[in-house]
Each structure stands twice: as structure tokens, then as C-alpha cells.
């Protein structure tokens, strides 16, 4: 028991929690935005993979870290455009289209990566984002190193959650997005074009997913390797339900999740050898499933989620 307490009381754990949470927060916010407008985006896993690859490759070829981040966001947006074409314009099954986007985006990432970086003994690396100490706050004992010495994208992700919450619940644009996700026909009667809203939400949401992926290669690690996203995208889809489609709860959900993940990582080193490490690695996936079971009944799903909208067709 004291081992567990020691882990929780270490500033290192909490610093890791914020780091682990960042891609989850960004990805969950992206998926949440799409779903608020009524589009389930299962392209997330592939889009994150592509963002991780293209962000890394951009920086590897000499560009600035932020340019890499931006390129990943734009690439994510383009995949969002593809998903919108399939699901909004053509009204195809959102499940299958999303999986198609994931399969395409991830295999395309591996193809481009292999083409650009021939097989090498050790994967090439870049210099990732360095932690920024917030003046004053970072000098606090415990809290300073735990919460106020993160990389800039981490602060950005937290800020984005608050901004998105404001936009969705306090602005006319947010109302339009929510209406489109709840009842696109009513939205149209109000002079809102549901197609445009859905396109916008999916493109911006997918751009966030691209950034989530880029964080992995530009801040959390410093190199790209296939399958590095490791189901984080699917966990984000589960977190959206856990967060009941609310950005601030998505932020908290991401943090809670990252806490368990960071905790199990440290517990692994403490209990190392006695318990197979794979058991620890299962925890995030099992937790996501449990979270879904707990929240799915209570959550208020956007009523038009997964329903294609065709003008004049009911």
C-alpha cells in the first residue's frame, strides 16, 4: 500500500499524467466536436497516426516544431474533409467510412514514412518540445514540477478544452453545432445549413486529432514508428461518451485516464517481475470499456448522431 502512496505523492507522476493526457484531451475534443454536429469519426486512430508521422517528418526535414504541429493539423483537416464527403455529402455509414479513413490514413502514413526514411538500425530522432516552466508558479514545491513545467502543447490542450466549452455552450455558432447534432431539420428551419456545419465540425475536429497525433512524436517521444498510436484514438472515442459530450468533462476524463495510465507505468517498475507487464498494459483498454458501461446509459447522446442528413428526406 505504501508503494502506491509513494507513487501518488511523487511530482514525477503528476507531470507524467499531464503529458499522457495531452493527446487524449486533444483527440477527445476533436471527436467530441464531430459528434456534437452528428458525425461519428472513427477515422481518429488513422488521423492520429498520420498526424504523428507527418508532424515528425516535417520537423525531421528541418522545419520548426510549430510548423510540424500545423502541418499535422492541416493534414488531419484534409482527412476530415474526406470523411465529410463520404458521410455528409453521400450520407454513407459513418462506422464503415470512419474505419475506411483509419485504414487508409494509417497505411498511407507507413508508406510515406518508409519512402522518406529507409530502414535504419535505430529510428532517426528530432529535438522535441521542451518543458516551459511558468514563471513563479513553477517554483512552488511539489505543484511546480508537477503541473507548471509542461510543454506548450499541453497548456494549449487545456486551454482548448475551455475555449471549446465556451464556443459550444455560449455562442450562436455552438448552438448551431448542437442543433445540427440534435435535429438537423430544425436547424435548417432556423436558416442554418446543416451540411456546412457538419463539414466545418468534422474538419476542425479532425485537425485536432492530427494535432493529438503530432504531440506523440513532437513532445512525448522524438521519433515515429508504426503502430505507435496504440489504440489511443479508440480510447478517445470512449472518453467522449464518458464525458457526456462535454469539453470540460473531456478534459477531466483525459486527466483521470492518464492518471491511471501513469500510475500503472510506475507500479510496473515497483512490482516489476512479480506480475507480467502485459496485465498493466491492459488496464487502459479495460478501463475504457468499464467507463463506457458505466456512462452509456446515463449519457445524453446527440439525437442525430450517425443519422445522415438529406434535404427533403426524412
Amino acid at each position: 500500500m505504501s508503494a502506491a502512496f509513494d507513487i501518488i505523492a511523487s511530482a514525477g507522476l503528476w507531470a507524467a499524467v499531464l503529458r499522457i493526457a495531452t493527446p487524449l484531451i486533444l483527440g477527445t475534443l476533436g471527436a467530441l466536436l464531430c459528434e456534437r454536429a452528428g458525425v461519428l469519426n472513427l477515422g481518429i486512430e488513422g488521423i492520429m497516426t498520420f498526424g504523428a508521422m507527418i508532424g515528425w517528418l516535417t520537423v525531421y526535414n528541418g522545419a520548426d516544431l510549430w510548423i510540424g504541429f500545423l502541418v499535422a493539423a492541416v493534414a488531419g483537416g484534409l482527412f476530415g474533409l474526406l470523411h465529410s464527403l463520404l458521410t455528409v455529402t453521400l450520407g454513407l455509414s459513418q462506422h464503415v467510412s470512419g474505419l475506411g479513413v483509419t485504414l487508409f490514413a494509417s497505411s498511407f502514413s507507413y508508406y510515406v514514412f518508409r519512402l522518406a526514411v529507409p530502414v535504419a538500425g535505430t529510428p532517426p530522432t528530432i529535438t522535441p518540445f521542451q518543458p516551459i516552466a511558468i514563471p513563479g508558479l513553477s517554483d512552488l514545491p511539489f505543484f511546480g514540477p508537477a503541473f507548471f513545467s509542461q510543454t506548450t502543447p499541453t497548456y494549449l490542450a487545456i486551454l482548448l478544452a475551455l475555449v471549446l466549452a465556451y464556443v459550444i455552450f455560449r455562442t450562436p455558432l455552438g448552438l448551431a453545432i448542437r442543433m445540427t447534432g440534435e435535429n438537423p431539420h430544425a436547424a435548417e428551419a432556423q436558416g442554418i445549413n446543416p451540411m456546412v456545419v457538419r463539414y466545418g465540425a468534422v474538419i476542425i475536429g479532425s485537425a485536432l486529432m492530427g494535432m493529438a497525433g503530432a504531440f506523440l512524436t513532437l513532445a512525448a517521444f522524438n521519433s515515429f514508428f508504426p503502430t505507435m498510436v496504440q489504440g489511443r484514438g479508440w480510447i478517445c472515442i470512449a472518453l467522449v461518451v464518458f464525458a457526456s459530450w462535454r469539453p470540460v468533462r473531456a478534459l477531466l476524463g483525459g486527466l483521470l485516464f492518464a492518471f491511471f495510465d501513469g500510475f500503472q507505468l510506475r507500479l510496473q517498475t515497483v512490482l516489476g517481475g512479480a506480475v507480467p507487464y502485459q496485465l498493466f498494459l491492459m488496464i487502459p483498454y479495460i478501463l475504457s470499456i468499464v467507463a463506457l458501461a458505466l456512462m452509456a446509459r446515463r449519457a445524453r447522446v446527440p439525437q442525430a448522431l450517425m443519422q445522415p442528413y438529406r434535404r427533403g428526406e426524412r
Partner: peptide, 15 residues
């Protein structure tokens, strides 16, 4: 529990 099986089956792949 009305949980979408897409996500659960995907997650169970990793498990």
C-alpha cells in the same frame, strides 16, 4: 448497457 459495440470490440483487440 446500450454501449456501442464498435468501440468495445476495437478495444478488446488490444486486450
Amino acid at each position: 448497457f446500450t454501449v456501442d459495440e464498435v468501440v468495445t470490440t476495437l478495444l478488446l483487440n488490444f486486450v
